[in-house]
Nucleic acid binder design. Structure first.
Length: 422
RNA sequence: GUGGGCGUAGCUCAAACGGUUAGAGCGUCUGGUUGUGGCCCAGAAGGCUGGGGGUUCAAGUCCCCUCGCUCACCCCA
């Protein structure tokens, strides 16, 4: 049997209601703030991701789904959500719209990684980006959007962690300070962290290795290296978050897995999250557009894994139940009635009634069993008797008495019954 | 990429020491006298015991390999 690729999932009807709850809630929160939907291709030129993500990141080094197409171009399945949106903004001249341009998306993300709880090779993210405005209020709005989405869903125990990484002009000094701090301690670092000492020292801070974490406690803090304007930006953001009553905690060790971030970075983490500690995160990326060869475009945004949101909904006991969609079930009792049954179903549907139609002639018992399980409120029986007399038997499934209605007024009669017992 | 646990019907699970024809519940389908649902009852369908190799008179059971699932490391959403 051919099976689905590793790390992918079939999303069955049973989880559709909860899935839709998440995306609908997010969409609603976006619309409440004037964020407009955007979608970008599943594949992009590989350079879009390699140039923005950062050479020293795991994502760039071993997690991208890249391939050469028949024309010899290197393409990559979307490995993160932000760079494609920035690319689309630049390529489509969205800087001609009033700034900032506020965009949101619901999309799939592909990363080659070993699957485990809450981690997939194809996962899905809700995300938003605000491009073209560098003021801290935009950071606050974006954070508020994600926070409000979680709150509306009923997830009220995730905590917001916040940090600022400063700007490119102060990054080298901070980086040097980290190297100066960790180099004498190199023997106490694990292998990965020692590697990062030269490749990407900031990421040492992210290590979950307890020994390394201990050393990080006294490591230089990025907040102490902020330039004047980055400092003001971060202070302003905190005031805004406090005024919005969004609780947050400064995490000096919070860096992010992608190198394009500057200034604000944030993550939402659930309590006692085992290995998958982040349900959503993002930050500011004012220099990303330049990395892909465009003019300067400040931006801030986030991504949040839908599968991880689902895990948190489940943890909080908040999964949605599918609602009934079928109003009526049409049951052909004889082979000769099948065509009539389908015609009746069509008339009802044209009138806005949701109808499930039995496809083959069967006993009333068999059809009524199906009708019950379809959760329809009425069953419409069509047999040779009914066809001869130009009527249809209308049986409410709530125990009320069965009646016969003429075919000519079947639709209005059925609508009346449906309206009556709802 | 590294390590642990686990693979029996669509699902949840049985099958003592290796020993006849691998079972049950749920679900599905059909029926329970003439054309009437849910509950109940009966019957049926549904398995190369993940795959391959080995040991043995005999393997779902023991050994090896492999694939898959899962959890953790790592990384991230």
């Amino acid at each position: 049997m051919i099976q689905r690729p590793r790390g992918t999932a079939d999303r069955l009807p049973a989880v559709a209601a909860t899935w839709r709850l998440v995306t609908d809630t997010f969409q609603r929160q976006c619309e409440l703030r004037g964020f407009a939907p955007i979608s970008t291709p599943t594949i992009e030129r590989s350079e879009l991701f390699t140039r923005t993500t950062g050479d020293a990141t795991d994502l760039a080094q071993k997690e991208m789904y890249s391939f050469e197409d028949r024309g010899g171009d290197s393409l990559t399945l979307r490995s993160e959500g932000t760079a494609p949106v920035v690319r689309a903004y630049v390529q489509n001249g969205l800087h001609n719209l009033p700034q900032p341009v506020k965009l949101y998306y619901v999309t799939s993300i592909f990363r080659y990684d070993r699957p485990q709880a809450g981690r997939y090779r194809e996962h899905h993210q809700i995300g938003a980006e605000a491009l073209g405005d560098s003021s801290p209020a935009v950071d606050a709005e974006v954070i508020d959007l994600l926070w409000s989405t979680y709150r509306s869903l009923g997830i009220d125990d995730v905590t917001l962690e916040l940090n600022s990484l400063g700007d490119p002009d102060t990054r080298p000094a901070y980086r040097r300070a980290l190297v100066d701090y960790f180099t004498p301690l190199a023997e106490r670092l694990d292998f990965d962290s020692r590697e990062r000492l030269t490749s990407n020292p900031l990421r040492i801070l992210d290590s979950k290795n307890p020994a390394v974490a201990d050393l990080c406690a006294d490591a230089p803090r990025s907040l102490d290296f902020l330039g004047e304007s980055a400092r003001a930006h971060f202070d302003a953001l905190q005031v805004l978050l406090e005024s919005l009553e969004i609780p947050f905690a400064i995490n000096h060790r919070l860096v992010r897995g992608l190198d394009y971030y500057n200034r604000t970075v944030f993550e939402f983490v659930p309590p006692d999250a085992g290995s998958q500690s982040t349900v959503g995160g993002g930050g500011r990326y004012d220099y990303l557009a330049e990395l892909i060869g465009a003019n300067h475009v400040p931006g801030v945004g986030f991504g949040s894994g839908i599968e991880r949101v689902l895990l948190n909904l489940e943890r909080c006991g908040l999964t949605a139940r599918a609602s009934r969609t079928i109003d009526a079930y049409v049951a052909p009792l004889a082979e000769a009635a099948v065509a009539d049954a389908m015609r009746l179903a069509r008339h009802l549907r044209q009138a806005g009634v949701a109808v499930e139609c039995g496809f083959r002639a069967a006993s009333p018992r068999s059809h009524l069993r199906r009708a019950s399980r379809s959760q329809a409120r009425v069953a419409l029986l069509l047999g040779t008797r009914e066809i001869e007399r130009g009527v249809v038997a209308l049986k409410p499934l709530n125990g009320a008495a069965q009646v016969e209605v003429r075919r000519a007024d079947a639709v209005t009669q059925i609508q009346a019954v449906l309206a009556g017992d709802s």
